[in-house]
Design a binder for these strands. Structure first.
Length: 827
RNA sequence: GCCGGGGUGGCGGAACUGGCAGACGCAGCGGACUUAAAAUCCGCCGGAGCAAUCCUUGAGGGUUCGAGUCCCUCCCCCGGCACCA
């Protein structure tokens, strides 16, 4: 009467009930608390912590479940696993909420954390909540400020007037990474430019090192993105002679990657912001130049960066001398030349540069060919020739191949003192200032007498004042907070003013992974010994969108930490893995589309275990997945089947044939060991989807075993135990419950991970495929130890194969051990 | 434009270093149980064909005994960069 038992309410799989029960028990028993333990190998698995937006969405689950599964797996394998969580709590949305809804950013953030902590707990992960960190608390940001001071000490922090990306709506500076398609990342307003006094970090000093990714296991595309972002170019600086009435500068320096084309220069172009523009412009050109400069300044990123836009510019009236040939060429300004790259000035060689070519055509400037294409007969160019060739019209360099000419011309310039070999980078220094309230105050003081003075370490943290008035304009409340601004100079004791800019949130999260190692440390940002034990991170996971922002800043800060002797490694993230994005019915999930999945509802209905399984099962983790409401029932059904299977009473069928029983036992053992191997290997390779599929297959197989009732009761019990152990990392609550009900020792999560025996996993019989001319004709079951001769003989004797051999001659027989026999025939 | 990643049933996806294409699951269809439905269980499930068999991994070509997998040409989708001199 099986229906009787299954309809019994007490025995039905009830996820919410058992999940809450075990989560409480684990917390009481401090099952997942971790401490440094030199006896065990360590494993630091970190997932990028969430910003405190208020709600955990399905994407968070998708990011957090697989690393937890992997961490649990490593734990069972005997590793001491650190898999912490915390909150990235400073940022603009908190302040926007303050402006819009009159709620203080601190209150807003802490409420969100409260909520998110509960949601995170519902995942059932191995987070050690004693190690939770929160970047907006003074005990954390004290050390963010400390890092600022350390960088200042080493001349890696400086203040400068810099042209910056500016969001007119948020009233704040945007880092390059915060400008997406020319618009503000947060509010979508087109970004403009502005000159402001800013604090910057000299990340460019580490440019070369940041391009190196030696010894770290990172996705190729992220490494490429970082290399492109640093954008190293090798070429030369060249000075052009300047003799202009009323201008003391006697030269203008440019950067080029093609010094071999210098004899082809027919004009020079300066960025509109170039400091010499105003001085050089002749009175007759002034009006036009000023209009152009003003226009480019006002233009948004989008307008200015549009590649579709036709290149335009204006003549300044000034000339410079190309010292290589003594020629005078006109100086123009154009906004296709960027002030922030190289020297903000370029030599224009229209014959060998597409942009210069277009510009020359538009304004009817001369085009002089100096690199001859192969087979060139002196004809005019229809477009710029940017390939290699032989130098012509280049005085003593005529006949030199252009690749060689690059070095030769550079060295000649160096000899003459007119320039020389040079390297430039696309990477700019990191603007750390934010004209905002909700961030760590920059620990700097301005004194009339002593100038810029750093806050002494003993005075840290510089507390963010609680009282703040949030203006709808978005201006920083700190600017108007007299109590905050007015202070005394640490040097002379006289009256002084505090810096009112706050620190970019990217600094908060560029060192948080250190803090997890010793989150309670109060005398330093982290305990050196703890960091020595845990770091570097064995597996860092998160979205690919952080490729050039967070990941570069973290590497930079980590390298600085190394250079001040805090740590002894070069790279913080030994292995990086980017998961994909979860979508729904082929569309991105977004609030505006109203197609977002609320994980809490599914947890309440189907349980966290089901969610965990489904998210892993969707597809390869790195490719993301397509959420479907019906699809999740597959995961739910599977767990129900496991539940029933594990609780079903089992006994061997009486009076069975011994040899049949023995065969069943051997097959069971083989399947168990094959499954252990498959699941272990998939977890090592982060192939969660196929791991779940293997566990489902194993469950299906065990269903058959349970019906056949050929193996002994203890063999059956062992098989179920193995299934539970293999499922434990993925399905922590259900397996714990069934483990307990089976009478095993608590906790399943403290058990050893099963190991496979290759000998036991080996198949005794295999299916050999028989092909004729590469076409499948038959499958034959043979012993795994079959010899080549036997295999070929068996294949030839197959009826289905013979039909295809009639009247033909066998040319060749191909044998792939354990796979196939292919008989090649001819008419 | 340049640099990555991808295109396999109705759908999500499997397929180790070239060797049974479609594992596992969803949806669908048929059946069992039920007064009925849900749940559950069993079976079928790429296309054409009565069948033998043939066709089928974005398109076309090539290498090979054998190609989803390797090479060439092209198309489409996703992500990043985009006047960097």
């Amino acid at each position: 009467m099986t229906w009787d038992r299954k309809s019994n309410m007490a025995d039905r799989y009830n996820p919410p009930e058992i999940e809450v029960k075990w989560q409480q028990k684990w917390a009481e028993d401090r099952l997942y608390e971790v401490t440094e333990d030199s006896k065990k190998p360590k494993y630091y698995a970190l997932t990028m912590f969430p910003y405190t937006s208020g709600d955990l969405h399905i994407g968070h689950w998708y990011n957090y479940v697989p690393p937890d599964v992997r961490g649990r797996f490593k734990r069972m394998q005997g590793f001491n696993v650190l898999h912490p969580i915390g909150f990235d709590a400073f940022g603009l949305p908190a302040e926007n909420a303050a402006i819009k809804r009159g709620i203080h950013p601190f209150t807003w953030t802490m409420q969100n954390i409260e909520n998110m902590r509960c949601q995170l707990q519902s995942i059932g992960a191995i987070y050690d909540w004693n190690r939770e960190i929160n970047t907006c608390l003074p005990k954390y940001y004290k050390w963010t400020q400390w890092f600022f001071l350390k960088l200042y000490e080493r001349d890696l922090a400086y203040r400068a007037k810099a042209p910056v990306n500016w969001c007119p709506s948020c009233q704040t500076v945007l880092a390059n990474e915060q400008v997406v398609d020319g618009a503000c990342e947060r509010c979508g307003t087109p970004a403009t430019h502005k000159d402001l006094e800013q604090w910057l970090f000299r990340i460019t000093r580490y440019a070369d090192e940041l391009m190196q990714h030696e010894g770290i296991d990172w996705p190729e595309r992220i490494k490429i993105m970082q290399r492109n972002w640093v954008g190293k170019s090798t070429g030369a600086y060249i000075s052009f002679g300047l003799d202009h009435p009323g201008v003391e500068e006697k030269e203008i320096r440019i950067f080029t990657t093609r010094p071999d084309t210098t004899f082809g220069v027919t004009f020079m172009v300066l960025a509109p912001e170039h400091p010499l523009v105003a001085k050089l412009t002749t009175p007759d050109r002034r009006a036009e130049v000023e209009i152009y400069v003003e226009r480019s300044r006002r233009q948004t990123e989008i307008e200015r960066l549009s590649t579709e836009k036709e290149k335009d510019g204006v003549f300044t009236g000034a000339y410079v001398t190309n010292r290589l040939n003594g020629e005078k060429v006109p100086v123009w300004i154009a906004d296709y030349v960027l002030a922030s790259y190289g020297t903000g000035a370029v030599m224009a060689v229209p014959a060998h540069d597409e942009r210069d070519f277009a510009f020359a055509k538009k304004y009817d400037l001369p085009i002089r060919l100096v690199i001859a294409p192969p087979g060139w007969q002196g004809e005019e160019l229809k477009e710029a020739y940017i390939e290699e060739g032989v130098m012509v019209n280049s005085a003593q360099f005529n006949g030199t191949p252009s690749q060689h000419g690059i070095g030769a011309v550079s060295d000649f310039l160096a000899e003459k003192g007119w320039g020389g070999r040079a390297v430039t980078y696309r990477l700019r220094d990191w603007i750390i200032s934010r004209q905002r309230y909700w961030g760590a105050p920059i620990p700097m003081i301005y004194c009339e007498k002593c100038g810029t003075v750093p806050v002494p370490e003993k005075d840290l943290p510089v507390m963010l004042p609680e009282d703040a008035e949030f203006k709808p304009t978005g201006e920083s409340p700190l600017k108007y907070n007299e109590k905050f601004i007015n202070t005394t100079c640490p040097k002379c004791g006289g009256p002084a003013k505090r810096e009112t800019d706050t620190i970019d949130g990217f600094l908060d999260n560029s060192w948080y992974y250190f803090r997890y190692c010793s989150p309670q440390e109060s005398k330093a940002p982290f305990d050196k010994q703890a960091v020595k034990y845990w770091m570097p991170i064995d597996l860092y996971t998160g979205g690919a969108e952080h490729a050039v922002g967070h990941l570069m800043y973290s590497r930079f800060i980590s390298k600085v930490a190394r250079d001040i002797g805090l740590v002894d490694f070069d790279e913080p993230f030994a292995r990086l893995f980017n998961q994909g994005i979860i979508i729904r019915e082929h569309q991105k999930m977004s609030k505006s589309k109203g197609n977002v999945i609320n994980p809490d509802e599914y947890v309440a209905k189907l349980g966290a275990d089901t969610m965990r399984v489904y998210l892993m099962f969707l597809g390869p983790w790195e490719q993301g997945g397509d959420w479907s409401d019906t699809g999740i029932s597959g995961a739910s059904r599977w767990l129900n089947r496991v539940w029933n299977l594990a609780l079903e009473p089992y006994s061997r069928k009486a009076g069975g044939d011994k040899s049949v029983q023995e065969a069943a036992r051997a097959e069971l053992l083989r399947t168990i060991h094959q499954t252990i191997r498959k699941v272990t290997e998939d977890l090592e390779r982060l192939r969660f989807n196929t791991m779940i599929a293997a566990l489902m297959e194993f469950t299906n197989y065990l269903t058959g075993v349970s019906e056949a009732r050929l193996v002994s009761a203890s063999e059956w019990k062992g098989a179920v135990a193995c299934l539970l152990l293999l499922m434990a990392p993925s399905v922590p609550h259900l397996t714990e419950e069934l483990w307990a009900r089976a009478g095993h020792k608590y906790s399943i999560h403290n058990q050893k991970w099963p190991e496979w025996d290759a000998a036991l996993a080996k198949e005794e019989e295999i299916t050999l495929v028989v092909q004729v001319n590469g076409k499948l004709r038959d499958r034959i079951t043979v012993s795994a130890s079959i010899t080549e001769t036997e295999a070929k003989k068996e294949a030839m004797s197959s009826e289905k194969v013979r039909v295809h051999l009639e009247g033909k001659t066998v040319v060749k027989e191909i044998y792939v051990p354990g796979k196939l026999v292919n008989i090649v025939v001819r008419e």
